[in-house]
């Protein structure tokens, strides 16, 4: 089992800096997701771990030992590319057995292991097919089997779900999760989809412009984002500018109580997720009660999104059940409650 550490990793392509001083630890036997918009350098990091790229500076450690002197073919860090890259001139079975053949394993052993691994990805008995006879989802699973058969020390998945339809994506995600749990294999997934990262990973590293913005378990990105950019990437839309003093923040719409937190006093932005803003009766018993006017109601099936205006120009969004939303029409005044536990200050 392998712990992967990136230490101050940087990569320049000519004048362009793709990755800048990234330090991250991917714990042993867990899934770590590198998340970020396209072009943020996450695939560059994956290729650097695989050995396909050499970093400009910094180090990559497997279990505390630098692997930079080891060529890619000896690292046993297997990458599964986004477009699965099955060799078209080989059968499905030959594709899966490719890594073992390169290691000089006996043909009979390869055949048996290929069958085992095809069964593992729920494609038993397809060894003699050609890759182009399979569907996109099946090809992706063959690519996964081809990587798993060499028992990689680290499994590197580049956008494993992005080429699949929505229902196949769910299936593939469950397969990756269950195989990873069963094999207890250190896995690093690159994705641009925050939902995918949250559902798949134990730990997320969010990147913007080649820099790591925040690392932590998925819930951190919802409950305690480090910057406004991080919060926005995870769908936060409510930001209130204010001055923090202890557990109180003075804002344009009044002073708000917040839960104790480590952010220094001074100017902050308060954020609260739309699903945490509550509609309440006007009784004044709860803290952080505000008056607002409904500006727009957007019905989205499972919920309704209300856009509200507070005071002169402060906008807030809240999610509520469609039945609750029926009682408040556009233009009506409502009372809001912002639970202190869910108000999070951003520096």
């Amino acid at each position: 089992m392998t712990k992967v550490e990136l230490q101050q990793l940087s990569k320049q392509f000519g004048e362009v800096t793709a990755v800048s001083h990234v330090s991250l630890t991917a714990p042993d036997g867990r899934i770590t997701a590198l998340l970020g918009p396209s072009g943020c350098g996450k695939t560059t990091i994956l290729k650097t771990i695989a050995g396909l790229l050499t970093p400009s500076s910094g180090d990559v450690l497997f279990n505390g030992r630098s692997i930079l002197p080891i060529p890619a073919e000896k690292r046993n860090a297997v990458m599964v590319f986004q477009n699965h890259l099955l060799f078209p001139y080989l059968s499905v079975g030959e594709n899966v057995g490719f890594g073992l053949k390169m290691r000089g394993v006996e043909a009979a052993v390869i055949r048996q292991k290929v069958e085992e691994h095809l069964a593992m990805v729920q494609l038993p008995g397809l060894a003699n097919r050609r890759p182009n006879e399979l569907s996109g989802g099946q090809q992706q699973r063959v690519a996964l089997a081809r990587a798993l058969i060499v028992e990689p020390t680290v499994l590197l998945l580049d956008e494993p779900l992005s080429n699949l339809d929505a229902h196949l994506r769910e299936e593939m995600r469950q397969l990756i999760r269950s195989l990873q749990r069963a094999l207890n294999m250190t896995t690093i997934v690159v994705t641009h989809d925050q939902e995918e990262a949250v559902l798949l990973a134990d730990q997320i590293g969010l990147m913007f412009d080649g820099k790591l913005a925040q690392v932590g378990p998925p819930s951190d990105f919802y409950e305690r984002p480090s910057t406004r950019q991080v919060a926005s990437f995870f769908g936060a839309t409510n930001f209130l500018v204010g001055e923090k003093r202890g557990n109180v923040v003075e804002t344009a719409v009044g002073s708000l109580q917040i839960a104790p937190n480590p952010i220094a006093d001074g100017p902050v932005q308060l954020t609260i997720r739309p699903e945490h803003v509550q509609l309440v009766p006007a009784d004044g018993r709860l803290p952080n009660q505000l008056c607002a006017t409904v500006q727009e109601a957007i019905y989205a099936g499972t919920h309704t999104r209300l856009r509200l205006i507070l005071g002169s120009d402060t906008a807030l969004t809240l999610l509520t059940s469609p039945s609750a939303a029926k009682t408040v029409g556009v233009g009506t005044a409502v009372h809001l409650h912002l639970p202190p536990d869910h108000l999070w200050p951003l520096p």
Binding site: K47, A50, G51, L52, A72, E73, K74, R75, N76, A77, V78, M79, F81, N83, L85, F87, Y89, F98, G99, K101, M102, R103, R146, A147, V150, L156
Partner: peptide
């Protein structure tokens, strides 16, 4: 990328030429 894929699967430079470039 096919060569890169073969390389991470453990193929040496000669094996990449023999099993990826040449058949393609």
């Amino acid at each position: 990328d096919f060569e890169a894929q073969a390389q991470t699967l453990g193929a040496s430079a000669w094996q990449r030429f023999r099993h990826v470039t040449l058949p393609t």
